[in-house]
Amino acid sequence: MTTESTSTEVQQVRAGELLRLARERKQWSVKEAASQLNLKLSLIESMERDQYDANLLPTFIRGYLRSYARLLKISEQDVLSAYERHHGGQQAETRAMHSFSNRTEKEATENRFMLLTYLVGAVLIGLLLLWWWQTHWLSDEVTANTSPVSTAAQLSELTFSEADTGPEQVEYQESMLDTGPEDDEVFAPESSSEVPAEVSVISTQPVAETVLSSNQLTMRFADDCWIDVVDDNGSRVAFGTKRAGYLMQVQGKAPFTVTLGNPTVVEIELDHEPVDLSGFASGRVAKFSVPIQE
């Protein structure tokens, strides 16, 4: 009966109380013990009260207890066993809580990283769709703008050619083909009054206007380049991004106002005459008139 009670009392004794009793038996003060262990006075007091800092790892606590027991010449195993009996379960719970907290924080960090990845991917897809839409839509617009201009110019030339083949023009042409002496007298200055009225009013001025008002602009692209071309009438005859190797021919009234994103990758001809673009810098937007004004 006495043995069982004594064993129970030993099991209830805390590690700090074992250390304090051993220090008092040696008649040492807490300050003397701290000085011999080269530890802080507050740490020695917390060990004897069996109250430890929550931020202090159990591994360091066991090391301090072992050093203190060795200094006091008592069993290190008894001190450590007493510590484990009263603090072992608490330390395990604390470690589990820390592990759960770390896992939760890690999952939150991973979720934020995945969200950022999805956001960047969505932005890149949006930019790709915008680029595709601009490229194809602008190309369609350029085709729609250039085709009516060419058709209108052809219709204008056809209409004017039909108008020039009227009876008066035929009569005039037949008279010009006849090179006899009688014709010389008819078209002589003194006999100009005898020329029929309908022949005298015929003029080639409209023909000259039609030829001069329709100019062909040819552009060859060695690399991708953005362009904007407006003729003298204010009509936009070309616009958008052209691919490398593309050959473009448009018609309109000169001079043309041309804007190029990169003039060094473009060759321009006006009515089959090359235009000098050597004065423009590479990679810089250039705006000029064709023909180039000196």
Rank of each mutant, 00 (worst) to 15 (best):
W226M: 10
V237R: 02
A153D: 04
L127G: 06
E162F: 14
E194V: 07
L138Y: 09
T179K: 03
I44R: 01
A208F: 11
E17V: 11
T241P: 01
I74L: 06
L43K: 10
T94F: 15
Q154H: 10
A122P: 05
G245R: 01
T6D: 12
L21Y: 15
A188E: 07
Q173D: 08
P181L: 07
I202V: 07
S35P: 06
A92V: 10
T165F: 15
R103N: 14
A254S: 02
I61G: 02
V237E: 02
W137M: 09
V290G: 00
L18S: 08
V123K: 09
V123W: 12
K106V: 13
T241I: 06
E24Q: 15
E162Y: 15
N145V: 13
K31E: 14
Q249A: 05
F280Q: 02
L43N: 13
A238F: 06
A244Q: 06
N233S: 09
F187I: 00
L270Q: 01
R66C: 05
A222H: 07
R243L: 05
M1F: 10
V79N: 02
D271I: 00
R236D: 05
L127A: 08
F221Y: 03
S278V: 02
M219A: 05
F256P: 00
N233M: 02
L18V: 13
L129M: 10
E4C: 10
A34C: 04
T257S: 03
E9W: 05
F256Q: 00
P263H: 04
A238M: 05
T59M: 12
Q11C: 09
F160W: 09
T109I: 14
V211I: 11
S156P: 03
E110L: 14
M47E: 05
P255L: 00
A122M: 12
A163M: 08
S35T: 12
S75N: 06
V229L: 03
L129E: 09
S161H: 06
T165R: 12
A238H: 03
P167I: 06
Q169R: 08
V170T: 08
